[in-house]
Design a protein around this nucleic acid. Sequence first.
DNA 1: TTTCGTTATTTCTTTAAAGAAACAACGAAA
DNA 2: TTTCGTTGTTTCTTTAAAGAAATAACGAAA
Lengths: 123, 123
Amino acid sequence: MAKKVKDILAMAKHPVVNGSLWLESEDKRFFGPGPVELLERIAETGSIRQAAKEMRMSYKKAWELINNLNAHTIKPAVIPQTGGEKGGGSVLTPEALELIQYHRELRKRFKEFLEKETGKLGQ
Amino acid sequence: MAKKVKDILAMAKHPVVNGSLWLESEDKRFFGPGPVELLERIAETGSIRQAAKEMRMSYKKAWELINNLNAHTIKPAVIPQTGGEKGGGSVLTPEALELIQYHRELRKRFKEFLEKETGKLGQ
DNA sequence: TTTCGTTATTTCTTTAAAGAAACAACGAAA
DNA sequence: TTTCGTTGTTTCTTTAAAGAAATAACGAAA
């Protein structure tokens, strides 16, 4: 390139390359940042409702994300239990925990990619 | 990982890692896939309106994208001319052409990243 | 049997994004 | 001076996403 990209751009703070990643199948995404954080919080709280509340997400949307995710996994990612001592709750399957771990590693590699690209803006 | 990620997921066609990239400043994105394609079509057609029409984008949205982009560059990316032989038109500055070229190269590297990550799903 | 809070689901309302339509200003060419 | 299609801008309408609220079913524990 003739000029540095950052010399074309003018802004108070330096520009960065940012982005988003997800898993998709047949052009439909089913596992992105939203579901990941939701699963992590369900693992902590044991409840879809509480996890959604922490994320300021409506229960309906949380349920939809989970339902969509379950439709894409051989075994469901979340096992719900209605009724019981505390009214019920939800637990994650080992497969869901593995998906979380996978996404953490994926995010790490993506972060490195983005930082490398942001560095190139000023070269 | 204990299991292959693809063995956790169940779908007709294989899952892929996909994503989106953009340039942002102070948490506001100003140069992503939409503006890039718009610029490319303005370069071809010499007209914001025609470029937008080809993308089935409203003129208003096209103008907003361009206006937002111009606000982030030292020199405007698009030079409009109202009136004239054909009613007017718009041309890209050399800086805009460089931004387009930069984004092409960025996309290429991102594509490689995504393909590598998709490959890892089945390992 | 009663109580509890959660899951699952529907319906309604609100909000935000997008689009449609209309119109003045513009300036080169005829 | 008239014509032309575009730019720039406003206002209104439509559409889509999101959220709010209400409610039945559930089952362990007291």
